[in-house]
Simulated scan of single mutants.
Amino acid sequence: MTMFGTGGLGASSSVFGQTAAASTANPMKDIEVVSPPDDSVSCLEFSPPAVQQTFLVAGSWDNNVRCWEVDQNSGKTQPKAQQTMGGPVLDVAWADDGTKVFMSGCDNTVRCWDLASNQTVQVAQHDAPVKTVHWVKAPNYTCIMTGSWDKTLKFWDTRSPNPMMSIALPERAYCADVDYPMAVVSTANRGIIVYQLEGQPQQFKTQESSLRYQHRCISIFRDKMNRPTGYAIGSVEGRVAIQYVNPANPKDNFTFKCHRSNGTNQGYQDIFSVNDIRFHPVHGTLATVGSDGRFSFWDKDARTKLKTSEAMEQSITKCAFNHTGQIFAYAVSYDWSKGHEFYTPTKKNYIFLHPCFEELKPRPKT
């Protein structure tokens, strides 16, 4: 069964088509998530496969994490709950059983939100804002992995106030991803460190970035045997690098330009930051979102673009796929890439749901 029923989506599209006609806020006529955050969206995650229903959580610079239930047929959303942190929220992660959400932020802590009781408890502490949090499920342990601007990567058994392990980083943690048995962390000054999580977490190798500018996002991909083998990394310079951890051929690694203006403005091309990268859970193709207010779908194996959206009113800051790959969620809000003078407080923040399964099918081999 598809996550969006055909009839439900058709009805929603026509409704949004009418409302979007007078507004540029929803040029793709996608389904709008109700009661969006009051400030920029910093993180976005769908519930894991263990959960029967579909839930979406989003963290924001308004200090809150919100949770919505997504209707299986119509795609319409219903606000379910909300929790507040002691500062702007920087990342969220689901436990694999879907009972808890971990929230990290600028108050230097990570809190565990138990969805059944709607209570939170602090489970991790750093000396600076916690930029990333990820759930790790290994055969012999489960924990959360946290990366901070205090230049440490820590692993926590959430039942203990002290970390299981603390690893010094060469610089502040900017972005990270986990797909067992692999973790990858990118730091300030374009550092990339790959960790293996089997037995116990340990550094596997450091890799030199093929991108010349600051990294913004990183996402692990799998090979045809469904094994995590590499990652895509995006930079502020409108470029993505596809990097294998152990490439069979050095030419397997490559970079491509994205989120740039088609034409030139007085001889210059406008270049925008790549704010997030996600791989489709079924097809293995990928989505990028950027400061140009567009999302794009790509086939990395065919090295081709599959689709680019119309431009939104503001930047797209984050995106996510649900676990069946039917829904693509993306958040439209200001990302401060143009500085304070371009911030417009009257502009609303949006989260949209886009039916995407067919659009992300790989390009047929010729």
Rank of each mutant, 00 (worst) to 15 (best):
G191L: 07
S186H: 09
A248I: 04
M85L: 15
Y350A: 01
P345M: 03
S333I: 02
D97W: 05
K347Q: 14
H323P: 07
S35V: 12
K151C: 15
H126V: 12
W68M: 03
P250I: 08
N322R: 10
N108F: 12
H215Q: 10
F297T: 02
F55V: 09
G75D: 06
C319A: 12
Y350F: 09
D270T: 13
F254W: 07
T77Q: 02
F357Y: 14
Q119L: 09
T120A: 10
A311S: 14
S186M: 12
A232L: 00
H354M: 08
Q78I: 10
S219A: 14
A320S: 12
R260T: 11
P36F: 00
E359F: 06
H283N: 09
P163S: 03
P163T: 04
V194E: 00
K205I: 05
G59Y: 00
S261L: 07
Q82N: 11
G98H: 00
I271E: 10
T285K: 00
R363E: 15
R190D: 06
V15W: 11
V41T: 12
D150E: 11
C217N: 05
L9E: 14
S261E: 08
K100H: 12
V194R: 08
Q122C: 14
V57W: 04
D223R: 06
T346Y: 11
G234P: 04
T346S: 15
W61K: 12
E69R: 15
L197M: 06
A21D: 08
I233Y: 02
S148E: 10
T2N: 14
K100E: 11
A124W: 09
E237C: 07
Y231E: 02
K224N: 10
A81M: 13
D270L: 14
A302N: 01
Q269A: 14
G5I: 07
I277P: 02
D107A: 09
G98K: 02
T308A: 12
G293N: 01
P201G: 00
Q269W: 06
P139R: 00
K257Q: 14
G290M: 03
T6A: 14
D150S: 04
S235E: 04
N118D: 15
S160A: 11
A311V: 10
L44T: 03
K305Y: 03
S42I: 04
V123L: 03
R303A: 04
K300W: 07
F46W: 04
W298C: 01
R212A: 13
N246W: 04
G10H: 08
Y174M: 14
E32M: 11
G7F: 15
W156L: 11
H259S: 02
D177K: 00
R294H: 06
E32H: 11
F295D: 05
S291K: 06
Q214H: 09
V110N: 01
C112M: 15
W68V: 04
T317F: 01
Q269Y: 12
Q326E: 15
V123F: 05
T146A: 15
M28K: 08
S333C: 06
S219L: 02
V185A: 03
R303G: 01
A329C: 09
K300P: 06
W68C: 02
T264C: 10
S35C: 10
